[in-house]
Write a protein that binds this DNA or RNA. Structure first.
Lengths: 130, 130
DNA sequence: CTGCCTAGTTAGGCACGCCTAATTGCTTTT
DNA sequence: AAAAGCAATTAGGCGTGCCTAACTAGGCAG
């Protein structure tokens, strides 16, 4: 399985649900993403086989180290890109929606440059009192 | 036919080839994008039927008004997003590669904000002598 | 105990965007 | 005129990511 946009979104969603609810099952992911149960169930089978998640006897899904690494990378991008867009004057809803797409496309190089610019802008707008 | 990423890329490519070479045929597009001729030929059939392009008896492809509108919109995004990334310190090659993906995802709102920021930055870096 | 709800899975299907192989037809070369 | 080359198309195929329908199995209410 190649990790492209769809896979990254599934992994990111698992991470978010885990942080939000403490525990994640296949049907939670389906609800969150608006997909059918079989779609998610099949996808999780692939993740299991490729070692991105583990599933216990009760159907609770956990990210493996490799799955977690990807999920955290995407989640960081999600937040930083959205925050950055907001410093340009984009409303929160649009910023998050756009970030959700851009996060999968942008290279590491561009992301780091964008992150640096975001930090500079944040500093200017609300200088920390250090 | 819904105009998503693939369609936008085809239309943008037609515009670029037209500007570069004056004339565009199906096989030029295939060469430019690295796709097979049948793939492009089939796609053009869809474009013809949906009125995004016209094709003359010699196989020369022209954008219709609706096709041109989309192509120009995407092309503008392509350039602006890449230039913007370069103002953040991203190298040209990476900037253009990333822009090529982001151009399809970003909302009009975010794009306009980003464009304004780009113009401000360009002004700062090389103020026009007006 | 029976019926119902929920979770998960299996089976089969569909649209999209790409592919190769093979055909048609035009143009150019010799 | 035959061969070679190039453009375009038709036919058939494949992976991805989604779907519905139908089944299994557990938990819980009446």
């Amino acid at each position: 399985m190649k990790i492209h946009e769809a896979a990254e979104n599934y992994l990111e969603t698992i991470l978010m649900l885990q942080r939000r609810n403490g525990t994640v099952r296949s049907s939670d992911i389906a609800r969150e993403l608006g997909f059918s149960k079989p779609t998610v169930s099949e996808y999780m089978k692939g993740f299991r086989m490729d070692g991105y998640v583990t599933v216990d006897v009760d159907g609770h899904i956990s990210l493996s180290p490799s799955g977690l690494e990807i999920a955290e990378r995407i989640y960081e991008r999600h937040v930083v890109i959205a925050q950055f867009l907001m410093t340009l004057g984009v409303d929160e809803e649009t910023a998050y929606a756009d970030s959700c797409k851009i996060e999968h496309d942008i290279s590491e190089k561009s992301f780091r440059c964008l992150q640096q610019e975001y930090l500079r802008r944040r500093e200017k707008l609300a200088p920390s009192p250090d």
